[in-house]
Computed example of a mutant assay.
Amino acid sequence: MDNSTRRRRFKGRVSLERTFITPVNTAFGSAAPLAGMTRDAIQAWVPLAEAAYPDTNNIRKIAAVLMEASARGDLMADHSRDVFDPEARPAPEAMTELAKLLEKVLSETRNMPGKIKT
């Protein structure tokens, strides 16, 4: 694999992270910032978000979308997949669908009583 392919995948991963982190941080502001798209970062974000917004069901929905996006992003960036099974990588459209789902859940969260405390 050449450097341009690696660079393209790295940029794709950064773009993916921005696609998901930015709307979460816009919704939750400084009260519960999401620091990254790793499993650990998402798990650390959940209690912060639950403290800022009491609807734990929506927080868990958001976290589930983030976890799925993280897992798919890892598959998209995994260079070993090229050697063993290039078809195992998710299609870019799958990430777009997850981004839309995240925005939908965030929108529901913003529009419910007991809005996010920022």
Rank of each mutant, 00 (worst) to 15 (best):
P47W: 04
T19H: 08
N3C: 06
S15A: 14
M95P: 00
E103P: 01
F10C: 04
R18K: 10
D74T: 13
R9G: 02
L66T: 05
P113A: 13
R81H: 11
L66K: 01
F20Y: 10
P47H: 03
T118Q: 14
A71T: 13
K100E: 14
R18H: 13
E87G: 09
R89A: 15
K115A: 15
K11G: 08
R6A: 12
L34Q: 04
M1S: 12
E93M: 12
N111M: 12
K100P: 00
A41Q: 10
A63F: 06
G36N: 06
E108H: 10
A49S: 05
W45Q: 07
M112W: 06
L48W: 06
V105M: 00
D2V: 09
P23D: 09
K61M: 11
V65A: 06
R6Y: 13
A41F: 02
K117G: 09
I116G: 01
A35V: 12
E17I: 04
D55L: 09
L66F: 11
V83I: 15
I21E: 02
V24D: 01
V65Y: 00
R89E: 13
S80P: 00
N3V: 11
G73A: 04
F10Y: 14
I42W: 03
M1L: 13
G36S: 06
L102H: 08
L16M: 11
R39I: 11
K115P: 06
L66V: 12
L101N: 13
I42R: 07
K104V: 10
T5P: 01
A64N: 15
G73I: 03
L48M: 15
S30A: 15
H79A: 15
R110E: 14
N58Q: 15
L75T: 09
P33C: 08
A49R: 01
P92K: 01
M37C: 05
M1K: 11
T5L: 14
T96H: 13
N57G: 12
A27M: 10
V14P: 02
R72C: 05
T96C: 01
K115W: 05
K117Q: 12
P113E: 14
L75G: 12
T26I: 10
A32K: 02
S15F: 08
D82G: 07
G36K: 08
I59Q: 01
L48A: 13
A71P: 01
I116C: 03
F28N: 02
Q43W: 06
A51G: 15
A64K: 03
V46T: 13
R81V: 09
S70Y: 00
V83L: 14
D78H: 07
M1I: 09
V105C: 03
A27D: 08
K117I: 07
N25S: 07
I21D: 02
R39W: 05
R8S: 06
Y53Q: 12
P23N: 09
R72A: 12
P86K: 11
G114T: 11
R6K: 15
L106W: 00
D82K: 01
K117F: 02
R9V: 05
I21G: 02
T5K: 08
A51D: 08
R72H: 11
I21V: 15
G12A: 10
L75K: 04
A41N: 11
E87Y: 11
E97W: 06
A51L: 11
A52Y: 02
A77R: 10
M67Q: 03
R110Q: 14
D82V: 07
P47Q: 06
K115N: 09
R110D: 11
A52E: 09
I62F: 07
G36L: 05
I116P: 06
M95N: 06
